Simulated scan of single mutants.
Amino acid sequence: MIVFTATLQAKSGKEKELEDALVHMVSEVQNEEGALIYILHRVKDTPGKFTFYEKYKDQEAWEYHDSTPHMKALLEKLESLLADEIKLNHFEEIASISR
């Protein structure tokens, strides 16, 4: 299992454009068989800050996601939208509930 978060901060004035691009990405990823969870969050107390929570069934599924045309297109678009580099945190799941 591959689990991580990706946090992105929009440049001032680019918040809506970034949000639209990230929401669109969710619709693209829903068709990836190995993507188990792909949730976009907006940080409530920081305008233009977003975090994805992502879970993939294995390394191969994550590598597939990372190589898709929609991921490549998003990364190109992000160059003009982000105030900072994407912050990634990788996790090892040790306990959970699911309903």
Rank of each mutant, 00 (worst) to 15 (best):
D84E: 15
S96L: 08
L18R: 02
A73V: 09
T7V: 06
E60T: 12
S80M: 05
K44L: 13
D84M: 05
L8I: 00
L22Q: 01
Q9T: 07
D45A: 08
L88E: 06
A6V: 06
E92K: 07
E17L: 09
G34V: 01
M25R: 15
A95V: 11
H65N: 04
S96H: 11
I37L: 09
F52T: 01
E79N: 08
L75K: 13
D20I: 13
H70F: 03
L18T: 04
P47Q: 10
F91K: 06
E19H: 10
E54D: 10
D66H: 12
L8H: 01
K16E: 15
E60W: 04
V23L: 14
A6L: 04
S80Q: 07
E33H: 15
E79C: 08
E28S: 07
L18M: 05
T7H: 00
F52P: 00
K87R: 14
I39D: 14
M71K: 11
E79R: 12
M1Y: 01
I37Y: 05
H90P: 07
S27I: 07
M71D: 09
E33K: 14
A95K: 13
N89Q: 08
G34R: 01
A73E: 15
E33S: 13
V3Q: 06
D84N: 13
Y38A: 00
D66A: 14
A83V: 01
K14H: 14
Y53P: 02
V43D: 06
G48V: 12
Q9P: 04
V3A: 09
T68C: 10
A35K: 03
E54M: 06
D20H: 10
T7G: 03
V23D: 10
V23C: 14
A6C: 07
G48T: 09
K77M: 11
E63R: 15
N31E: 13
K87L: 13
I97N: 08
T68M: 14
Y64G: 11
E17W: 04
E85T: 15
E92T: 11
P47C: 03
E19F: 09
I39E: 12
Q59V: 06
F52Y: 09
H90L: 10
G48P: 03
S12P: 13
H24T: 15
E15G: 06
Q9V: 12
S12C: 11
L78T: 03
Y64W: 10
H41Q: 03
K49H: 05
D58T: 02
A95D: 12
E54N: 12
T46M: 05
H41M: 01
I94C: 05
